[in-house]
Amino acid sequence: MDKSGQSRGSPKEGAVRTRTLSLAASFIAVSCIAHAQSATPGGMPPPPGMNLAESAAMRFPQPVRVGDLLHRTVLQPVESQNVLGTVREVVRTGSGTIEIVIDFGGFLGFGTRPIAVPVDAMVLLGQDMEVVAFTPQQLRKFPTFSPTGTTPVPNDTIIKVGLAKPSH
C-alpha cells in the first residue's frame, strides 16, 4: 500500500513505485503471452481415415511400465483438461490388443464405472494420460468393463504408449 502512496513523493520514492508497477506489469505480460503456446493444442484426434494403431504410431510410442500407469489421472485433451477418470488396470483382450481400464465418470466417487479403452486411443501426458481418439460423449456409450475374456497385464510388463503435448 504505502509504496503506491508515494505517487507524489520525491523522485527516489517514485523509483520504488516504478519497480512495484514494473513487476506487476510484467506479470500481466507473461500471463498474456503464455496463451501463445496454445496455438497448436496437443492431444489431437487421429486424422480422418486413419485407424488407431496407425495414429498411435505417429505419436512416438514410448516404453512405460504398466505398474507406473495405475492410478494415473485420465484427462480430456482440451484446454480445461477435464478429468475423465483414473487408470484402474491394464488388460489384454482375447485378440491380443491392450486396453486401459478406466474408472470413468461419476461425481465424488458415486456413479463411477469401469470402461476399457484401447491403449492406442490414449497418450501419455507427463504424470497423466489422455484419451485422444474418443470424445467424452463416445466414452459414455462404452459398455461397463467385464474382465471375462481378458487377462490382466502384470505390473512389471513394459508396454508402449504414444505421447501428446499439453493442451493448455
Binding site: 505419436r59 512416438f60 516404453p63 507406473d68 507427463g126 504424470q127 505421447l163
Partner: peptide, 16 residues
C-alpha cells in the same frame, strides 16, 4: 524419475 518424461514443444508430437 518420471519414465518416460513429459513431451512438450511449440508444435504437436506428430510433427517431431
Amino acid at each position: 524419475i518420471l519414465k518416460p518424461p513429459k513431451f512438450n514443444a511449440y508444435y504437436d508430437v506428430m510433427d517431431v
